[in-house]
């Protein structure tokens, strides 16, 4: 209400009002502060104007309410307040010109310097939120950590189960679309001696896989040899003390060939991934897992090379 206006009172005015509250008259107050009574009157009148009240007692009461933070009913008796208290608390002001109200409200203890005050209130650490009561979440931090990890496990398992379910259903539905023979339920069921659609596909897949891996190994080997050749050319020129320009054109060609081989090898790598997809598409996903079979170790390695190649470059 008048809290803002009370903030505009100077300390001198407040001191006077406090003495007014204890029934000192202007002459007495003037004697205490060592200034003229008219100066005291001026202060009090200014305070009355600022607070917008009728009498000095009303102004003094308002100040007391504000300072105590509670409403008061009765005016305290004069005898109760020790008269020497103001003298001890308030220094005699050396000069007392016209009372100038403080332009900005004085910062009180509960709001800090502006930016940090905002941060504190944003984080709920201001301490003035007025939120009191019993906490709902009464777990300790250790408990919460344990529960968090348990929750992670629960969600992970649930979602993996759901995804697995979805994949199985999808491949089942896809296989059913081509409606010749039905897919046998479990992955370990062997064909019954008749050629089923499934066996056809598995045979085809296995044949393609073998051939593809052979080609992939070959191109990888070829790329390795070509690159090694480039390196060897460079080194042997030095070893034979030949001039820098020796065989430059040939070197370029071999290097270009090596570059092309590496590109070709990369195409095989990409084709490898694409073929794994094809395997899923034709409905063999549940039999091969996600590229996790004997032929496709996690690093997507090809079949082990028949011979170990010793690169000349790392001799």
């Amino acid at each position: 209400m008048t809290a803002g206006r009370i903030d505009q009172l100077t300390e001198a005015q407040r001191a006077c009002l406090r003495l007014v509250l204890t029934h000192h008259n202007s002459k007495e107050i003037a004697a205490i502060f060592g200034v003229s009574p008219s100066a005291i009157d001026k202060r009090i009148e200014r305070a009355i104007q600022v607070l917008g009240v009728g009498t000095r007692f009303e102004a003094a009461r308002r100040l007391q309410e504000h300072e105590r933070g509670t409403a008061i009913d009765a005016v305290p008796s004069r005898k109760a307040a020790p008269p020497d208290e103001p003298v001890a608390t308030y220094e005699r002001l050396p000069s007392e010109p016209i009372d100038v109200p403080i332009p900005a409200p004085k910062p009180s203890n509960d709001t800090q310097i502006e930016p940090w005050g905002f941060v504190r209130r944003f984080l709920g650490l201001a301490g003035d939120s007025g939120s009191v009561g019993a906490a709902r979440n009464r777990f300790s931090m250790g408990d919460r950590l344990v529960r968090l990890i348990a929750l992670m496990g629960l969600i992970a398992i649930t979602s993996m189960a759901l995804v697995n379910l979805a994949m199985t259903l999808t491949s089942l539905l896809r296989s059913n679309r081509d409606s010749t023979a039905p897919i046998h339920g479990t992955a370990t069921t062997t064909p019954m001696g008749r050629t089923t659609m499934l066996k056809q596909r598995r045979d085809a897949t296995d044949t393609v896989t073998t051939e593809f891996l052979k080609a992939e190994a070959a191109i990888d080997h070829a790329a390795m040899l070509a690159a090694s050749c480039v390196s060897t050319l460079l080194q042997q020129r030095v070893a034979a003390n030949l001039p820098l320009g020796t065989g430059a054109a040939a070197l370029q060609m071999v290097s270009q060939a090596s570059f092309d081989m590496i590109n070709a090898r990369q195409r095989f790598v990409e084709a490898h991934r694409a073929l794994v997809d094809v395997r899923h598409e034709i409905g063999l996903g549940q039999f091969y897992g996600y590229g996790d079979t004997a032929q496709c170790p996690p690093n997507e390695g090809a079949l082990p090379a028949a011979t170990s190649v010793r690169l000349a470059a790392v001799a």
Partner: peptide
Amino acid sequence: TLKADRFWPAWATALHAL
């Protein structure tokens, strides 16, 4: 999750951790 007086952050943190 460790400090707030709430229960939903545990779920959100679990999801985000995964």
